[in-house]
């Protein structure tokens, strides 16, 4: 059973002037619990693919099915709600809310989901301890290192209990030690809690950790290896 499938996915930019095939007929299937890296050179289309899978962008052609639901057919309002309840996001630049503490940043997503304060707090504490930030829960992002901020971002991404987490070059701004720590932590979450992670990266360390590596070039999948 796949949690995510794409069928003949196309994304063409600037259709009226010079068409650029950012994604050119991608068929992809992801199972629950995968730890997958989408790799490729700059401009290969990996971030575009992630945006399409995450429902942040609309394909020009093709279909994206998440647990049986074609997200292309959802209205913008329902798509936003779908993202909130089904997809976790980790961004390259962490993108935490600077006025909220680490704990509040994680809680915020559950607040948007309408969870009670009690259940939010319980889960947040557990998640921040799981990512090794049990002692930094009340610190604001400015007081955290890049690696710590990205851990908070991961905790935030999985707080909403998503079907999968999309991480767009999550280690791009981190030093090697922070990268190592982050990847270990994500791998642990994947192994122990069966959280599905899909990365876009060109970081060799991420590729090394990933159990499946999908290589994209010119908007096409050129290789798909499972270790």
């Amino acid at each position: 059973m796949f949690i995510l499938e794409t069928k003949n996915l196309h994304k063409i930019y600037d259709e009226k002037t010079v068409p650029v095939h950012a994604i050119d007929g991608i068929d992809l299937s992801i199972r629950k619990g995968e730890f997958t890296a989408i790799v490729g050179p700059s401009g290969s289309g990996k971030t575009t693919l992630l945006n399409l899978i995450g429902g942040l962008d609309k394909p020009t052609e093709g279909d994206i099915i998440i647990e049986g639901i074609s997200i292309n057919s959802l209205s913008p309002r329902r798509l936003t709600d779908f993202r909130l309840r089904n997809i976790g996001f980790v961004f390259q630049a962490y993108n935490l809310i600077p006025v909220l503490t680490a704990m509040e940043n994680v809680e915020f997503i559950m607040h948007l989901q309408g969870q009670s304060k009690k259940s939010r707090e319980k889960r947040t504490v557990g998640l921040l301890q799981a990512v090794g930030l049990g002692d930094r829960m009340h610190a604001r992002p400015a007081k955290l290192s890049g690696g710590q901020q990205q851990r908070v971002a991961v905790a935030r991404a999985i707080a909403s209990k998503p079907k999968f987490v999309l991480a767009d070059e999550p280690t791009a701004n981190l030093d090697s030690k922070s990268t190592e720590n982050l990847l270990d932590m994500m791998e642990k979450l994947n192994r122990e809690e069966e959280i599905t992670f899909i990365f876009s990266t060109h970081d060799a360390r991420v590729m090394k950790k990933a159990r499946r590596v999908i290589t994209v070039d010119d908007g096409k999948i050129v290789s798909d290896e499972t270790k």
Binding site: L56, D81, L84, L112
Partner: peptide, 9 residues
């Protein structure tokens, strides 16, 4: 980011 993670417009 807020809209991406699911904060409604």
């Amino acid at each position: 980011m807020l809209m991406a993670v699911g904060m409604s417009r």
